[in-house]
């Protein structure tokens, strides 16, 4: 017969595990906030880096990150919504197309991020870029190189499952009675989907998009060779420009900076900005999900 004391020890052990995890989270966040906070200023966010990355700001990296995720969102959200609509509204569960598409999306979610980088390089840059150059630019090297276009497409492919899962979930949650009412009024299937079902699932589209953007802002491995650069004299203006990116900046600064100590303050602040951005996006996604769920179901 175990004594109550032993019992309490085990329960405490479990609690201890929770505390350890939380403590580590706090350590990471705290350390970064502590060291990154004081360098933070409006100038930091709006200026370019100077003096070998020891002073100035990280505006180009912020700009590049935002541009990247914006382009990515333009690609991934419509496609993700369409596939989600397919899963939820059109698919015949027993059909081969459905099973293959499901398998495709599930597998996509499991691909390691560096393999996406290989894909971005081998397919987008070399194959598509090469093709574009042949067809549109007479063989001149215009798109067959790292570019923000290819990077955003690569990230779109990476975050596609995130969008699909989020949108599909909310589509399925739309009550069947809405669809019934719409059909009974003589609406076609696509009218029903786009006028009734999808508007009701907007929270899923938004959260999916925001979660995708959040991941897109933080992932570095896929864009290592597909467009990101350490220092560029000017901001990206064309689709085949390279770009600076927050996460990539952190990586390079941490590992290849000639004087780590000198760049540390800038580095910490960059990490802080990246972290803050990611968390903010995640929080917004959660908030939207909570709020829109309430209004959609009100009155019932």
């Amino acid at each position: 017969m175990k004594s109550r004391f032993t019992d309490k020890i085990f329960v405490f052990l479990c609690l201890f595990a929770v505390l350890v995890v939380i403590a580590m989270l706090a350590a990471v966040l705290g350390n970064i906030t502590y060291h990154g906070w004081d360098r933070l200023s409006w100038e930091f966010i709006s200026a370019s880096p100077t003096h070998g990355m020891t002073e100035g700001g990280i505006f180009p990296a912020i700009y590049g990150t935002v541009l990247l995720v914006l382009l990515m969102a333009i690609f991934v959200v419509p496609l993700g919504v369409c596939v989600a609509i397919y899963f939820s509204e059109y698919a015949d569960r027993s059909s081969r197309l459905y099973r293959w598409t499901r398998a495709a999306v599930d597998n996509l979610a499991g691909v390691p991020s560096i393999v996406f980088g290989l894909f971005g390089l081998g397919f987008f840059v070399q194959f598509v870029g090469g093709g574009v150059d042949q067809v549109f630019f007479g063989g001149n090297l215009t798109f067959r190189q790292p570019a923000i276009l290819w990077a955003s497409l690569t990230m779109a492919v990476l975050t596609l499952p995130v969008v699909i899962i989020s949108v599909e979930e909310t589509l399925r949650a739309v009550p069947q009675s809405f669809r019934d009412a719409s059909y009974a009024l003589g609406a076609t299937k696509s009218q029903t989907i786009f006028r009734v079902v999808l508007p009701n699932a907007m929270s899923g589209v938004l959260t999916g998009g925001i979660l995708a953007v959040s991941r897109g802002a933080g992932e570095v491995a896929p864009i290592l060779f597909v467009g990101a650069a350490y220092f560029l004299p000017h901001l990206p203006t064309k689709l085949n420009d390279q770009f600076m990116q927050l996460g990539y900046h952190v990586f390079v600064l941490s590992t290849q900076s000639p004087d780590v100590e000198a760049t540390k303050p800038l580095l910490y602040s960059t990490v802080f900005v990246l972290l803050a951005l990611t968390f903010l996006l995640n929080l917004v996604a959660v908030a939207i999900r909570a709020r829109l769920r309430v209004t959609a179901g009100s009155g019932r």
Binding site: S177, F178, L185, A187, T188, R195
Partner: peptide
């Protein structure tokens, strides 16, 4: 036309609900 057992207005305005059939057709 059909009216269902559970009232199922769309989560839109009253106006948009009534106008739905007209717009869609």
């Amino acid at each position: 036309g059909m009216v269902f057992q559970q009232p199922n207005p769309f989560p839109k305005s009253i106006y948009d609900n009534v106008a739905f059939g007209l717009r869609v057709n």
